[in-house]
Design a protein around this nucleic acid. Structure first.
Lengths: 135, 135
DNA sequence: TAAAACTATAAAGCTACTATAAGGTCAATA
DNA sequence: TATTGACCTTATAGTAGCTTTATAGTTTTA
């Protein structure tokens, strides 16, 4: 299997596969005589694992960490769970921050309507005045 | 006022000020004979405006857009409000996406406990199996 | 006077790719 | 046979919004 087929199979771009290989997230595959990369089906599983982790919002560094755990399968999986817990709390704090931001934006937006001139725009005035600590 | 004082006043790094200037978000200030930038207090208002926009999650491009509206104060502020509406809906979709992600992460985390070996880790198994479409 | 603190510019680094350039390989077609 | 098209290769640059580093000149302080 060449890189294009693998890419189609997993649903990524060929450059992404080369990029992961370059970043050390995927092992260098065998090459044909002409230099083309050749992949086994099993290789696709590793790639799919990375993609699922990315969809879950894990960074490449975190994925690398998970892979290092997989290399040593008889240690307790405490660290894996801890990584996920950290990630969950990170996602939660993002949500909280965005919700606060939404409130602020909505209240800012409510301070204006479309019938004004820029000079009197409540939105711009709101940003300029800097009363942004009203939570 | 030199760049360090301005930076302290507004609460940014000096490099950030130079960066905004370079990006055209701030006008080039006067220079002393030695080449040092000199700022007025009023200049700080423009900088503070940018920072507040950034805190609201606006991109530098959006800030640039807002500035262009400010340059023409007698047009209706429809565009300003539209920009903010777009941004609000962007923030809302981010929140929705993150909430879905959180659910997925929590359910993944619930599939394991700390008493297992990596080999049997429910989290890693969950990612590897790829049953990630269960919403 | 010498060190510490400030300023300047330019360039690289960060994340996770994506896009572009310039070229080599292969199978099918005109 | 020549060439077109689809595929592959590497290397490099671009994205956002800074931050960091390098190198050097200037001012302030001890």
């Amino acid at each position: 299997m060449r890189i294009g087929q693998l890419a189609q199979l997993v649903g990524v771009e060929t450059q992404t596969i080369r990029f992961y290989e370059q970043q050390g997230l995927l092992p260098p595959p065998d090459r044909q005589d002409n230099g083309y990369r050749v992949y086994t089906e099993k290789y696709g599983e590793g790639l799919a694992f990375i993609r699922r982790c990315r969809i879950l919002g894990l960074s490449l560094a975190e994925i690398h960490e998970l892979q290092s755990y997989q290399d040593d399968p008889h240690q307790p999986c405490t660290a894996v769970n801890a990584l996920l817990d950290d990630h969950i709390s990170h996602v939660r704090s993002q949500i909280t921050a965005l919700q606060a931001l939404e409130k602020q934006l909505v209240s800012l937006r409510a301070s204006c309507n479309d019938d004004r001139e820029v000079e009197a725009c409540g939105v711009l005035a709101g940003i300029s005045e800097g009363n942004m600590h009203q939570q």
